[in-house]
């Protein structure tokens, strides 16, 4: 009747020849993954190996036959290049600034939309549009229609306040680019945070209210912690795309004046496609990758903590 509790020490999970858990099954599970994995490795990883290889060579496309192995010379040049440092700083400022401001604006807009009012869907539609618009078109729009010193709307709007015909783009090149980027990315942040706000479980909000929390208390104690992972996701995804900003700089300032508004993607592009200096630009690429890996390691930890709780054991 009763089974006594003898410990079967010899029992271990069985590894059958077929069926779940077997070696064949492992390949059955892996097979669907392989095409995507192989494709991604070939298209995105292989080029980096070439980048490293090229970065050790002196190679200028306009001087055929100039190609030779120079060791770490390119890297020395990169690190002694004051323009490169300036551009790296620009990149950090541009990325961090754009992410931060679009996040703040996005949060405010999301809070504004997180209640029922007449025309809410319409307003949301208007607000997301800058994210959908082609970045090149957006940059064009800012450069001409908005920032143009003579005919731009910005100057027209500010003229009652005594602001003359300011050439915003020449005077504040990096800030102008950032304004355009923030305008484009605020909708993205807003959508994410709005989704977060609306996914709050109602019973928790009600419980907090019944427990005597004020509106501000509910917001601080319940909503902000809940929004946290949405904000983190916004930061990570925003940074991924914004660090690669190219279109806006290309269209609005061409990195100028000088390198005042160039970021790394644009600077490397200049070196490679206008200066034809493959070795130099490859070395810069490697430096950027290494720096990104360092930053990304933290970012990835963030994204993983927030979004794969499911099977993390």
């Amino acid at each position: 009747m009763t089974v006594t509790a003898e410990r079967p020490a010899e029992l271990t999970p069985r590894r059958p020849d077929r069926g779940p858990g077997s070696r064949a099954d492992g390949w059955v599970r892996r097979a669907p993954l392989l095409p995507a994995l192989v494709f991604t490795i070939i298209v995105t990883q292989l080029p980096f190996l070439f980048t490293i290889y090229y970065s050790l060579q002196s190679w200028n496309l306009v001087r055929p036959g100039s190609r030779q192995f120079v060791g770490i010379d390119n890297y020395i040049l990169v690190f002694t290049d004051s323009q490169f440092r300036q551009v790296a700083l620009n990149t950090v400022l541009l990325t961090a600034g754009s992410v931060l401001f679009s996040l703040i604006l996005g949060l405010l807009f999301a809070l504004l939309l997180d209640r029922a009012f007449l025309g809410r869907g319409f307003i949301r539609t208007l607000l997301i549009t800058p994210f959908l618009i082609t970045p090149v078109a957006a940059a064009l729009l800012w450069k001409t229609v908005l920032f143009d010193p003579t005919y731009g709307l910005i100057n027209f709007v500010l003229s009652p306040f005594g602001v003359g015909a300011t050439d915003w783009i020449s005077t504040f090149p990096l800030t102008s680019v950032m304004v355009a980027l923030v305008w484009q990315w605020t909708p993205f942040m807003m959508l994410l945070i709005l989704a977060g706000l609306q996914s709050q479980p109602h019973d928790v909000l009600e419980a907090a209210r019944v427990d005597g929390a004020t509106s501000w208390g509910v917001f601080r104690e319940v909503t902000i912690p809940h929004l946290r992972r949405f904000i983190e996701l916004g930061i990570v995804l925003g940074a991924i795309y914004l660090i690669n900003t190219f279109d806006a700089i290309y269209m609005m300032t061409q990195g100028g004046p000088g390198t005042a508004s160039a970021n790394l993607p644009f600077y490397i592009y200049q070196r490679a496609f206008l200066g034809f200096d493959i070795g130099q630009s490859a070395a810069m690429g490697v430096v950027v990758v290494v720096a990104t890996i360092i930053v990304a390691t933290f970012a990835l930890r963030l994204i993983f903590r927030s979004f794969s709780g499911g099977e993390e054991t």
Binding site: V3, A5, R7, P8, L11, T12, P13
Partner: peptide, 15 residues
């Protein structure tokens, strides 16, 4: 019939 999720731990279903 036995089911062991992790070797060494107590079986989920024991004999």
């Amino acid at each position: 019939a036995s089911r062991i999720y992790t070797a060494g731990a107590k079986p989920a279903v024991n004999r």
